[in-house]
Simulated scan of single mutants.
Amino acid sequence: MNISMRSKDKPIEIVNLVAAACLFLAPWGFGFTSDWPAAWSAWLAAGMLAVYAVASWRSSSGRNAWTVGGEATIGIWAICAPWVGHFSTNQPAMWSHVMVGAAVLLAAALDVIWPHMHGSRMA
């Protein structure tokens, strides 16, 4: 199923790649590389998000349900990771995850909702 008709227009992928880069660099930028659960969560989530964004970018059919669903799942993980990984007391790590996760989840939600708001049909 093709979520949106914008195969040439890639703003969601750009948002996700920027979000992935921010989350990947956050452990160094905010100084939580020594907090292994937080750092590894950031690196793994960023890597997975980048893979989904690149896969969606390179897809000839545009964004589809599996890429949007995968990105949304990574966004949910990033939001929940500080509590699941027991690093919610590390404020820089917690907020890095929550903010990036919220941005990714919002981008995925808008990608699903936007065509309906503007009269486009899902293919």
Rank of each mutant, 00 (worst) to 15 (best):
M1F: 08
M1Q: 01
M1S: 03
S7G: 09
D9A: 04
K10M: 06
K10S: 00
K10N: 01
K10V: 00
I12C: 10
E13H: 06
E13T: 01
E13G: 00
I14M: 04
L17P: 06
L17E: 11
V18M: 03
V18Y: 08
V18E: 13
V18P: 03
A19P: 12
A20T: 00
A20Q: 07
A21D: 05
A21F: 15
L23N: 04
L23G: 05
L23R: 00
L25M: 02
L25F: 15
G29S: 10
G31E: 06
G31I: 04
G31D: 04
D35F: 05
D35H: 02
P37Q: 10
A39V: 02
S41Y: 09
W43V: 07
L44A: 04
A45W: 01
A46R: 14
A46D: 11
G47M: 12
G47Y: 07
M48D: 02
M48C: 08
M48E: 05
A50H: 08
V51R: 06
V51G: 07
Y52C: 12
Y52V: 12
V54P: 09
V54M: 12
S56Q: 14
S56A: 14
R58E: 15
S60T: 14
S60L: 14
S61M: 09
R63T: 03
R63S: 11
W66Y: 06
T67A: 14
G69D: 04
E71P: 09
E71K: 00
A72N: 05
A72Q: 06
I74N: 10
I74S: 09
G75I: 10
I76F: 00
C80R: 13
A81P: 11
A81M: 05
P82L: 07
W83A: 03
V84P: 02
V84S: 03
V84I: 07
V84M: 09
G85F: 08
H86D: 14
H86I: 04
S88G: 08
S88R: 14
T89A: 15
T89Q: 12
N90A: 00
Q91I: 14
Q91M: 09
W95V: 03
S96C: 05
H97I: 00
V98Y: 07
M99S: 13
M99L: 13
M99R: 03
M99V: 11
G101W: 11
L105I: 08
L105A: 13
A107F: 03
A107M: 08
A108G: 01
A109V: 14
L110G: 13
L110A: 11
V112Q: 11
W114R: 12
W114N: 13
H116Q: 14
H116E: 14
M117A: 15
M117F: 13
H118T: 10
S120T: 05
S120Y: 12
M122D: 06
